[in-house]
Write a protein that binds this DNA or RNA. Structure first.
Lengths: 190, 190
DNA sequence: ACGTTGTAACTATCTAGTTAGTTACCGGAG
DNA sequence: CTCCGGTAACTAACTAGATAGTTACAACGT
């Protein structure tokens, strides 16, 4: 590999920035700390990303795409989708933190993580599952989707009720998965 | 009223600090801005609250107590409790934001808003409602409570799925209340 | 030779927290 | 009633360090 590699530099910056923004938020993150952690000169960071906000947006977009692609949506089996989302949120808390910072410090209302296309596809799948009797037709698809996601993130690191600790015994996780599955199953039964 | 009133000064500081912390978080809030907004000298702020974190903790405790007392818990009617919590979250988004900042920047795992006593009382009420057949005994009370709260906050300003806008038409709120009520009702049915 | 990649040092501004001193209030002595 | 002294409430100005962003210049590779 070459001594000079703009692409690799960019990746190192994004990795360091992801960690720092997830830990401290936009206002709390430090540009010098990120550059030092990445082993990159600060001026180089600015030439790549413009400013601190530009760096945050790049970090957020990258990670939001990753998480959406990582957990495929199954409208005809919402409990399973919820459980997989629970696992993803526990396994990668920094993504949840990043999204929460973005919500608080950047975009105020509306959708956040998913783009229009990803969201639309899920909504259509829910409508179809309502027609075929997997999901109650008593709610609008967008409310079904929002509720399932909220339920899956009940114990996430940004939860206002009760956040799971990283070192919780597997039995706790298993108990929550069962509770979540039961609750989702009942909540949207036709 | 006296020209000098330490208690009134304290209240003005807490009010200004609540607004600033809710808007910008701990790292983003500015001590000078808070003092100026309250019309209080900065040194006075420090004599009252020690430092920035001390001020935040005072602000958070005050508001957390207020919200817990404002929405009484009814284990035998969880859908109604959820709807009242939804309304509270929409009406006072700054409380939700404050709690979310606290979660991200201060306490990492475990409970957040409620103290031991308030939480215990709710958990016992849920256990009782499980015995009397209002709530499924298939889940532990703590999971029931966490899930209900998470569901009620599905559209709150800190939601990762879809945040309600302040100016949403009443029809949207009504639609969400019905969806929430239906979902909660189904999720914990025995 | 020349654009891309990289660096060290710098600046202007901001920020939490402090200090040394001033003013209103209040209870008691005269 | 009024003067006095102590104390609590309050203030202007300051400090030391941090912070985002810039500049002028050097080295690499092709």
């Amino acid at each position: 590999m070459p001594v000079r590699d703009a692409e690799a530099t960019r990746r190192r910056l994004l990795a360091a920035a992801t960690a720092d923004f997830a830990a401290h938020g936009i206002a709390g993150a430090r540009v010098d700390r990120i550059a030092a952690e990445a082993g990159v000169n600060k001026a180089l960071l600015y030439s790549h990303f413009g400013d601190k906000l530009g760096l945050f947006d790049a970090v957020f977009r990258m990670n939001a795409d990753a998480v959406v692609e990582a957990t495929p949506f199954t409208a005809e089996d919402l409990p399973d989708y919820a459980v997989r989302l629970y696992d993803a949120a526990i396994a990668r808390p920094e993504l949840i933190r990043l999204a929460t910072w973005a919500r608080l410090e950047r975009v105020t209302p509306g959708g956040l993580v998913m783009d229009e296309a990803a969201s639309d596809a899920k909504l259509r799948a829910i409508a179809e599952a309502q027609r075929t009797g997997f999901i109650t037709p008593a709610m609008e698809p967008r409310d079904v989707l929002a509720l399932v996601i909220a339920m899956a993130l009940t114990w996430s690191c940004a939860s206002l009720s009760y956040a799971a600790a990283p070192g919780d015994p597997e039995a706790d996780h298993e108990r929550r998965r069962r509770a979540l599955s039961t609750a989702v199953s009942g909540a949207f039964r036709p």
